[in-house]
Nucleic acid binder design. Sequence first.
DNA 1: AATGTGCGCAACCGCGTAAAA
DNA 2: ATTTTACGCGGTTGCGCACAT
Length: 428
Amino acid sequence: MGRHSCCYKQKLRKGLWSPEEDEKLMNHINKHGHGCWSSVPKLAGLQRCGKSCRLRWINYLRPDLKRGAFSQEEEDLIIELHAVLGNRWSQIAAQLPGRTDNEIKNLWNSCIKKKLRQKGIDPNTHKPLAEVDRSGAAPTISTERTSGSSDVNPSSAGALGNLSHLLSETAQSSMFLPVYDKNRPETPSLARPKVPPKELFLDQLAAAGHESPSSCRSSGQTLYFPFQQPLGYSNECGSGDSANMNSLWFNQNDFNCSTISTVMPPVSPSALSTSMGLNLPPDNPHHGGTGIGSAPFYWDGANPSSSSSPGSSGSNGMVFEPQSTNSILENRVFPWTEIGQEKDNRVHLVEELKWPDLLHGTFAEATTAMQNQSQSLYDDVIKAESQFNMEGICASWFQNQQPQQQLQAASDMYDKDLQRMPLSFEHI
DNA sequence: AATGTGCGCAACCGCGTAAAA
DNA sequence: ATTTTACGCGGTTGCGCACAT
């Protein structure tokens, strides 16, 4: 395999980017798009390698980046997604519009890990630390890319695998899990997928839930179902009382097939509602508490004024504006845990969203039936992704901006740099 | 005030993969 | 079919700041 030739070239600047460099890069991409990244530095007049330019653009200069601290909802979503996807930061980031994989990775390593440990949860396995300790060798997240195997968090995959294992064929067929072809060749794309995020995301969930890696055998021990973990992550539950937290975990012993279809939605409602851009009035009886449409954690895609990305208003799905004033975890992320009295009239709504629909692009139709304002995850994510293809898009974004907005954008863009500006700039 | 330490963030590095030559 | 080039991803490093000693 060839290496980045640029990496070996000498006299290329490294380290922090100066405002001048940022300006050059931004101007160039605004005018011409990035095209071939390796040619960007030359065309933009930068003493940087293309890789560095790309990274700078993606992680810092992109106009659709959401700035500022992560909200509690975002953190919860990251935890939730990490339980399913492991350290696949780019895929996690795909579910958090405006956030970069690097940003999420840093947040995870510096902040979330710590919080989870403080709450008695092992950040690698998403299990209670006590349980991990008891089992001896703590399973670790395998993110080896050389193995060629799926690097889905094995603990999560294992948990899902356990669930899968528990199910009879009949039970499985009644679920809305996809019919996953076990004979499907293990394509490299599973390890390093280059497919649209939605398909990828669902594919991995499917793989996690339906494939049977060796780690997925039934262990006979208590199963902690990862989707419910955020109950333990909740601030409200952040007492650190591990006994209480443990009680929130899903116990295989209480598990029966009748609950599976409710307990096992393949994608968490928050993830879907976030990604789909659902704007669901909380009092809508069609998504009152169970299922995908139930999460009042929604954002107003039609409210560009609230967006950090003015050019992405409306349907392009880049505006991520959590509207919930409550914790996402209060029966919203995992509302199916609250089956109770409303179960019957809600479950069927959830069950309308069958995996084949999700996987074959008819998801939007199903959700439309439930909720007129919904849009497909696929469309949304694709649009989000297309935002990254800045060929001309960025230019149009800037063209759409009012002068003061451009100034504000530029101002925001340099906030961090200004904050980091050494004292030597004070005399300017 | 000087030094040490921890933390967060930005950027780099190495690798795998796909596409192009 | 093979080699080269480019891209994207995840892990790691290092800088700068804030706080403690």
